[in-house]
Amino acid sequence: MYLADEAWPDLERYFDEESLAIVPLGSTEQHGPHLPEGTDHIIAEGFARAAAERTGFLCTPTINIGVSPHHRQFHGTMWVEPPVFRDYVESFTRNLAYHGIDRVIFVNAHGGNVQHLREVGRRLRDDGTIYAIEWMWNESIPDLVDEAFAQNGPHGGPKETALIQHLRPELVHDDRLEAARDGGLTSFDEATMRQHGARTFYDAIDNTDNGVLGDQTDATAETGRRLFEAASDQLVDLSEWLAARPFAELMPKDHV
Rank of each mutant, 00 (worst) to 15 (best):
P154F: 15
H155K: 03
L177K: 05
F74T: 03
G153A: 12
V80Q: 04
E160V: 10
R168Q: 11
G100R: 01
F92T: 05
A150C: 03
P154Y: 15
L124K: 01
A162F: 10
N152T: 11
E134D: 14
D174C: 10
N64L: 11
G153M: 11
L171Y: 07
T55W: 13
R125W: 13
P69L: 12
K159W: 15
F74I: 01
D126S: 11
P69C: 05
V89N: 04
R168V: 08
C59G: 04
G121W: 10
F106N: 01
Q151E: 15
G111W: 06
T62D: 11
H71P: 04
R118P: 00
Y88Q: 06
L163V: 04
V114A: 08
I141Q: 01
Y131Q: 04
Y131E: 11
G153V: 08
L163W: 03
Y98W: 10
R72T: 00
D182H: 05
R122P: 01
Q115W: 14
T55A: 11
R118F: 10
P82E: 13
E90H: 02
D102H: 07
R86N: 08
G156W: 04
V145S: 03
R118Q: 06
G121K: 02
I63K: 01
V120H: 06
D143Y: 15
F106D: 04
V120K: 02
T93V: 14
G111A: 13
R86H: 12
P69M: 12
L177C: 12
N152W: 15
R168A: 09
H173T: 00
S91G: 13
I133K: 03
L163G: 02
I65V: 08
I133W: 13
R181Y: 15
F149M: 06
L96K: 01
H70A: 13
L124P: 02
I105D: 04
W135V: 12
F74V: 02
D87Q: 08
H75Y: 14
L117S: 02
M78N: 14
V67K: 07
C59V: 07
H173V: 00
V89H: 02
E160L: 13
R72Y: 11
N95D: 14
P158T: 05
F106H: 06
V120L: 05
D127L: 14
D146T: 04
S91A: 13
Q73T: 10
R181A: 14
L167R: 00
G183V: 03
H116K: 05
P169Q: 10
G153H: 05
T93N: 11
E160H: 09
I101Q: 08
V80C: 08
C59N: 05
E90Q: 09
T161W: 11
R125S: 08
A132F: 12
N95G: 11
G66K: 06
T60D: 06
S68Q: 04
I101L: 08
W79R: 00
N108C: 14
N64K: 12
E139C: 09
R181K: 15
G157F: 08
I133P: 01
P83K: 00
L124M: 09
G156R: 01
D174N: 12
I65S: 01
G153D: 10
D182V: 03
Y131D: 11
R125Q: 09
I63F: 12
F57K: 00
H166S: 03
G183A: 09
V172K: 05
V104F: 10
P142E: 09
E119I: 00
P142F: 15
S68M: 03
F57D: 03
G157L: 06
H173L: 09
Q151M: 14
V172L: 10
R125N: 09
E139M: 14
G184K: 00
